[in-house]
Computed example of a mutant assay.
Amino acid sequence: MILTFLDVLVLLGVILGLFLSVLLFSSRSFRSDVHRYFVLVVASLSSILTYVYFEQHFPAVALLELISWEFLFPFAFMMYVLKAIKYPLGSSGKVWWWAAPFLILTLAYFVDFFLGFDLFYWLAGNNLEKLEIMIEVKAFTFLLFSILLVGFSYIRIRRAKGLYKTERRWLELNSLFLLVYLWVWMLGDPITLLFDVTIWNYLLAILAIFLVWVTYRGIHHLNISEQRRQIQRIEVKAVAITAKKEPLEGDHFMATQDIRSPIYQKTADKLQKLNTLMVDEQMYCDPNLTRTMVAEKLNISEGYLSELLGTNLKIGFNDFINKFRVDRAINMFHDRQFHLFSIEAIGFEAGFKSKSVFYTAFKKGYSKNSW
């Protein structure tokens, strides 16, 4: 048998997909629900690609059809997203109703294989023409079901709060790719008739490339996510990971204001509250922290907050927040408990949205001690 380029590409996608599934499923480092559902997504797509492409050449591959991978895939992807964004539905018992098609069809396949009772043939009244129609309806239902669940997942990602930039981008890219892919597959027959081009091999090749990419990027992404979870679980003293409690009054402000002045007392009070928000409540750890959120906490306007920082500390809002984040990261670098974690994971945990922003802030030499 001579292997074509498409054969090699599909084999590579399948092998990497299954390898990633086995690796993550057996690894003690990846035991969270998020990782398990990600493994199910990759395993489902790898299995679908395997029996669609290789069933004619290797009859034994038909054993994979004992499990309804086509209905497991959209449910697993939805659960992966819901767990990743911590959406309440992901922990609700009601969500398991969406697994009903997978469970029912898998049970039917096992009954057919072991007992010789073909549920679909029986429902079709032992009529082959009706059976073919039912198979087409099942395929169409799978595509609609998948589009519904993946589309719902994409909407939830867009509306999710508290996600890091890289995490949101990763989830959005996967969702968008799958949505476009499913729609193109659904419109495959009309496209073939309209343009007189067979697109099925191209679609299989694209799915194989996606599996290769998601395997390569997925391991890195999941590794960073797992490191962040481990960092959050480590119990350390507050002084080891927070900025020191230092007064925020700048020298310029102290030298030019009358300490008995009501204006000074009001400003000093706001600065102290700001210090409490940063040091005690660690608001800077929120990657989506905005000037509006801080101003509302202080019961002042955004303009007054900017004036407060600019006049007294000679610093802008973003630089002010990043100083605390870099201080937190530096303290973690100096703590032996965090030596095994990557710089990227520590940067995310300190509140930076992306590694590029963290590196830029770090290179500027931000440290609250230098104010």
Rank of each mutant, 00 (worst) to 15 (best):
D7C: 07
V8S: 08
L9R: 07
V14N: 09
I15V: 14
L23R: 15
V34N: 03
F38K: 12
S46H: 09
S47W: 03
I48A: 11
Y51V: 10
F54P: 02
P59R: 04
A62C: 03
E70H: 13
F73T: 02
F77M: 05
Y87K: 01
L89F: 15
S91P: 00
W96H: 12
F102A: 10
L103D: 02
T106K: 05
V111E: 02
V111D: 01
G125F: 00
L144D: 02
F145D: 06
I147F: 15
L148G: 01
Y154P: 01
T166H: 08
L176T: 03
L178K: 05
T198K: 13
L207T: 09
L207S: 06
A208L: 07
L211F: 04
T215P: 05
R217W: 05
H221D: 00
S225G: 10
Q227D: 02
Q230N: 12
R233D: 14
E235T: 12
P247S: 11
L248W: 03
F253M: 08
R260E: 11
P262F: 13
L271K: 00
V279C: 04
Y284A: 06
L289P: 10
T290P: 10
A295Y: 07
L298R: 15
G310A: 03
I315K: 04
N318E: 12
K323I: 06
D327H: 11
R328P: 03
E344I: 01
E349W: 05
G351R: 04
V357C: 04
F358K: 00
K363R: 14
G365W: 09
